[in-house]
């Protein structure tokens, strides 16, 4: 038997035994509270019409003995699918394998379709369909739309642009998608130009304009504040000089730009540390799911 197969087998058997043990203790089960819903028709035809169904709210295991609380098969199954998915992705750490590839493929499919569905219901239906056909929208998906709303035909323009955008998928005439693309690029450029200049250029320069030497109201020198301001201004200026590639980095400029590099290295060092912090937090989040939600440790 190959070493890797042996390790896999031991891991699987040990993991399976542990899971069986945990499951026998009742962990990994989800309980829900049944909440009956009674809804009255908004526009009853003739006599009063009442619609009834049941809503389910997840509860903690401690509440499982209560009368309206019951075991939820679909959510329990979901919890185990979620746990399996988590372990399947983690299995990539040992090495690429078919289970990982399978879950990765599922992920790609689900996420693309998820984004499409959300975009469809949130933006396309509410901001295009309901604007162009408010009457039809009212009797189908959005009964709350104002009954006096009239079609806004201006929205035909984005409809046409959108169709042209989707034309990109067609084997012929896909150049027409450049029109909506141009609108998109033009709009992005337009809003970014002003915002970046206002906030990131003028705003940032304004915030850097501060005194080198700071005095207190009684006239005494606040030398710590002065030192910090000086370090700050020197930092910004030296980094900017380093970014200034149109001049030769010789003589004084060379030394200043070298100082700039050091400031940038401090910046990157801090960014690295914060990135590490973030990544570890993501792992903790996942392990909390496995340990608390699934295994009940």
């Amino acid at each position: 038997m190959k070493q890797s197969t042996l390790i896999w087998t031991i891991l699987m058997v040990a993991g399976g035994a542990f899971l069986l043990f945990q499951a026998s203790k009742g962990n990994g089960r989800v309980y829900v509270r049944e909440i009956p819903v009674e809804a009255q028709a908004s526009q009853p035809e003739g006599e009063e019409q009442v619609y009834r169904w049941t809503r389910y709210q997840q509860v903690t295991e401690a509440e499982k003995g209560e009368p309206d609380v019951r075991f939820s098969l679909s959510r329990t199954l979901g919890l185990w699918v979620a746990a399996f998915s988590t372990l399947a992705i983690f299995s990539f750490l040992y090495g690429d394998n078919p289970i990982y590839k399978f879950t990765e493929s599922v992920f790609v499919g689900v996420s693309a379709a998820y984004a499409m569905v959300v975009a469809f219901w949130t933006e396309i239906m509410t901001n295009l369909y309901a604007k162009l056909l408010p009457g039809l929208a009212r009797i189908t998906f959005y009964p709350d739309i104002d009954s006096t709303a009239r079609p806004d035909y201006l929205y035909l323009i984005p409809l046409v642009l959108s169709i042209l955008l989707l034309w990109r998928l067609s084997p012929k005439g896909s150049w027409i998608a450049r029109w909506p693309l141009a609108f998109f690029i033009g709009a992005t450029a337009g809003i970014r130009l002003i915002s970046y200049l206002e906030t990131d250029f003028v705003g940032q320069l304004q915030s850097t304009v501060m005194p080198f030497i700071v005095f207190a109201s009684d006239g005494s020198l606040l030398w710590i504040k002065s030192l910090r301001n000086t370090i700050f201004i020197v930092g910004v200026v030296s980094c900017m000089i380093y970014f200034f590639f149109s001049i030769e980095h010789e003589g004084v400029v060379k030394y200043i730009s070298r100082l700039g590099i050091w400031f940038l290295m401090v910046t990157f060092g801090a960014s690295f540390a914060y990135t590490v912090m973030g990544r570890i937090a993501l792992l903790s989040g996942r392990l909390v799911f496995l340990f608390n939600d699934w295994l009940g440790i």
């Binding site: 206002e198 906030t199 910046t267 801090a270 990544r279």
Partner: peptide, 21 residues
């Protein structure tokens, strides 16, 4: 860029370590 700075909307954020710096 588009909200708090041009329109002076009081804003607080919570962000990831990557964005913090």
């Amino acid at each position: 860029l588009y909200g708090s700075s041009p329109f002076d909307i009081p804003t607080v954020v919570g962000c990831t370590g990557v964005q913090a710096p």
